[in-house]
Amino acid sequence: MTVHSFQEHFDSLIDREIAIEPKDWMPDNYRKTLIRQISQHAHSEIIGMLPEGNWITRAPSLRRKAVLLAKVQDEAGHGLYLYSAAETLGISRDEMYDQLHTGKAKYSSIFNYPTLTWADIGAIGWLVDGAAIMNQVPLCRTSYGPYARAMVRVCKEESFHQRQGFEIMLTLSKGTEVQRKMAQDAFNRWWWPSLMMFGPPDAESPHTEQSVRWRIKRFTNDELRQKFVDVTTEQAKVLGLDMPDPEIKWNEERGHYDFGKINWDEFWNVVKGNGPCNKQRLEARNKAWNEGQWVRDAAMAYAAKKKNKAAEAA
């Protein structure tokens, strides 16, 4: 087959919604875009453990602690599913780690905000995981098979995360005045960064069209953001919390909630590395990686020793 016919075959698979698998021919850009998207997603899961890990030892009850531990362990699992999906495209795990540790690869900016109170754990589960689910559910039908399969697992597990967060928020908002204020404060701080999780407005998102064509992306950033605003505004009513945006208003004509202007300068500033915790997050990752080196080496040495012994005995 010529390159032209390879491309035609690929396009026809995409058009017929047939999954692309690792050994299939694919355009270089498709491969590159997927590696970037999947590895950034994996990095986000791994970095995402840090803000929540901050509260494991200080969870208010044994139940909350067990739940938070399970959730953080899930995030590690999600990172691992995604890293192995990316590896099927021909990048090694160490290469991806290196890109994360040197700051070359990005992860979701939301994790560069601090978790100041216990209510932040509730807000993260409710809002951040809620936004993540909205982004991720369509990816269960994405065109690249290993990515789609990883996302099916991730989405199944993610819904417990959002529920546990909402439950924390509900408990706090029905609690004492101090607890209610704590919940409101966390809501106020996490609301805008959660809206930014859907990425820049469609008009400024140059890759959207190509990604939609490739079925790597199934809805635009603005479509998903609007859906999130609509759903979350209703949920906030159940919590009895005030929307952090005074401009939130139901628009009868559009059938959606209107909302205020997002501070994109803040978003780009955090992306560029100037968020409250960018430095701290990368340092924590690098420390864990470097200090784990001897463990990885020892495990390899032990495996080699066992192999040699088995060979001698044979």
Binding site: G77, Y81, S84, E87, R149, A150, R153, Y302, A303, K307
Partner: peptide
């Protein structure tokens, strides 16, 4: 799916967790 491990035993244990 897949995962990294130093040997078969560790691969099984990691698979259990992942």
């Amino acid at each position: 799916g897949s995962l990294h491990a130093a040997d078969a035993q560790m691969a099984i244990e990691n698979a259990r967790d992942v």
